[in-house]
Nucleic acid binder design. Structure first.
Length: 200
DNA sequence: CGTACGATCTGCT
DNA sequence: GCAGATCGTACGA
């Protein structure tokens, strides 16, 4: 319970962490605006052995160097020149595993998120998709490398217990170029309908 | 230095 | 269903 600690992020098993992040609460406090919600979709990227990963083959560049740092920080990068995508760096230093947060169910700071996204209704559509999520939460490049153990960006376990049958595991989105690794079941989606009601 | 393209979303048809 | 937006990153010259 409570904010996830440093040890949570240090495991080598990035796939299991991606699975276990479902049902956790993601919070972001930027510009004195607190936003957040329940994580409902994640994708694991398994470092140097995963052809879909930015760090495949040990690729180390100015962008990907964040992935090589110790687990528990954010890896944020620009996609298609438009969208910032939020990742959780896991494992120990020099093991560049990361988890892409693809969707949350919006619960905290909904009016602010609506204003940022020019949307009218606060259903799950508000923060479904990695680009929409970062826009709604005000997440940009400036949070790249920020620790999940501090008070700007963090994840909490609020005691929601997920049944395995409510989790869909399948292939990741937009990674067709990754050849045999494109089919790996590293994407996890939570059937949130069974959990959201408990929080209202 | 030049070029190709991407872990996407929106709006229009 | 599809094109367009829009730019940093990576890599080769």
């Amino acid at each position: 319970m409570g904010k996830l600690s440093a040890s949570y992020y240090i495991s080598d098993d990035v796939v299991s962490i991606a699975n276990s992040l479902l049902g956790k609460y993601l919070y972001c406090n930027t510009n004195n605006i607190l936003t957040g919600g329940i994580i409902t979709e994640t994708e694991a990227y398994k470092g140097v052995t995963d052809k879909a990963s930015h760090s495949y083959g040990g690729r180390l560049t100015n962008r990907t160097k964040t992935m090589y740092e110790k687990g528990g920080i954010a890896y944020i990068y620009l996609c298609y020149g438009i969208h910032y995508l939020l990742n959780v760096v896991t494992a120990d230093i020099n093991t560049p595993h990361a988890i892409l947060i693809r969707s949350i169910y919006p619960l905290i700071g909904v009016p602010e998120m609506l204003a940022r996204t020019s949307k009218k209704t606060a259903d799950y559509n508000l923060t479904i998709g990695p680009g929409k999520l970062t826009k709604a939460m005000g997440i940009t490049n400036s949070l790249n490398g920020v620790s999940y153990l501090e008070n700007e960006l963090w994840i909490e376990d609020k005691g929601i217990v997920i049944n395995e049958e409510d989790i869909y595991a399948g292939s990741r989105i937009g990674v067709e170029y990754a050849e045999e690794d494109a089919a790996l079941p590293y994407r996890f989606v939570l059937n949130h309908n069974n959990y959201i009601k408990k929080t209202h």
